[in-house]
Each structure stands twice: as C-alpha cells, then as structure tokens.
Simulated scan of single mutants.
Amino acid sequence: MNRYFKSAYLFGVLGGLLGIISFFTLSFFNEDPTTLNLIFGYVIVPISIYLALRYFKDYSNHGYISFAEGMSVGFVAYMIIAILSFIGIYLILSFDSSLFELIKSSKIDTLVTSKETIVSQVGDNSYEATLESVKEMEISDVALNDAIWKIVPGLFFTIIISIILRKNPN
C-alpha cells in the first residue's frame, strides 16, 4: 500500500508547501491574498497531481496505471495539499491578525461596492445574508475556503489526468 502513496505524499507535501508559500508571499503584495492564492492553486494542484501520477506510473508501477490507482493516488495528493494549505493559512492568519482583518475588510468593501450588481442578480435578502456572513467570518473560514478550492479542482483534474495517463498491462 505504501508504494501506491509514496508519490502522492511527496507531491502532495510539495504542493501544500507551495500553497502556503504563495499565500505568505502574496500577503506582502496584496491586502487580500486569498483570490490570487486560489488562482495559484488552480495551477499548482493539477501540476502536483500530474507529477504524483506520473511518478507512480513510471517508478512504482512498472509503467502502468489503472484509473482506480490514478484516482487513489490523486485523491491522497490533493487532500494533502488541501490539509497543509488549511493548516498553513490558519497559522499565518492566527499569528498575523491584522492580515485577517485586512482580508475581512477587503471582502466587505467588495460586497458594498458591488451591492447593486449583486442585489440585481440574487436579491436583497441574499445580499444581506452574505454581508452578515462575511462580517462574522473567522480565520478558519478563510483557511477552509482555500482548502475546499484545492479539493474541488483536485477531483476534477485527478479524473482527467487519470484517464490520460491510464495504461493497463495487456
């Protein structure tokens, strides 16, 4: 079982650390690094999954990988990325509460400046509920949101990459 997940652990940890580093670095250049970090996640997650599956196929499984093996290795890789990203962002925001307050105020400002557009699309009640939700936001909400947006595309890319790399022995 360990051979199945050696590559997943390796590239999952690498992707998770890159996610943490990107959040930390982006916090110096932008008062709300969450949006740019999500975009960076859309790049690093598929690359990490591809490398994990390719490494498993080439070095652990004699050049073969089934769809199920690809899904298993990919799942472990993107879950490790998401968990490490959650922990890293949570710790960064816990130690730097002013950054969390900047993120929160930025999200509130975005909602306030876009009120007319949002209300026309979803209605006044939804807008008010969203605004209240953002005002009550906690550090764990920011970290969990980032983790979720590592998992969702991770599943999507794992399916695609597993299909592309699939090669069963004859």
Rank of each mutant, 00 (worst) to 15 (best):
A8S: 14
Y9W: 14
G12P: 11
L17N: 03
G19I: 12
I20W: 15
I21L: 15
I21V: 15
F24S: 11
T25K: 12
T25L: 15
T25P: 00
L26Q: 08
S27D: 09
N30T: 12
N30V: 14
D32C: 07
P33D: 05
P33W: 08
L36C: 10
N37G: 09
I39K: 01
I39Q: 04
G41N: 03
G41Y: 01
V43R: 04
V43Q: 00
I44N: 05
P46S: 04
I47L: 12
S48N: 07
S48C: 03
I49M: 06
I49N: 00
Y50N: 07
L51R: 02
A52H: 01
L53A: 06
Y55P: 07
Y55N: 12
D58L: 14
Y59F: 15
Y59V: 13
Y64L: 11
Y64Q: 05
I65N: 08
F67Y: 14
E69F: 05
E69V: 08
G70I: 00
S72P: 01
M79T: 11
M79Q: 00
I83M: 11
L84Q: 04
L84F: 10
S85M: 12
F86N: 03
I87V: 13
I87C: 00
I89H: 01
Y90K: 10
Y90G: 05
I92W: 07
L93S: 01
S94C: 10
F95S: 06
F95P: 05
S97Q: 13
S98I: 13
L99G: 08
F100Q: 08
E101Q: 14
L102M: 14
L102K: 15
S105Q: 15
S106M: 13
S106V: 13
I108D: 05
I108R: 08
D109I: 12
L111T: 05
L111A: 08
V112F: 11
V112W: 11
K115P: 01
E116H: 07
I118A: 06
I118H: 02
V119N: 02
S120L: 06
S120Q: 01
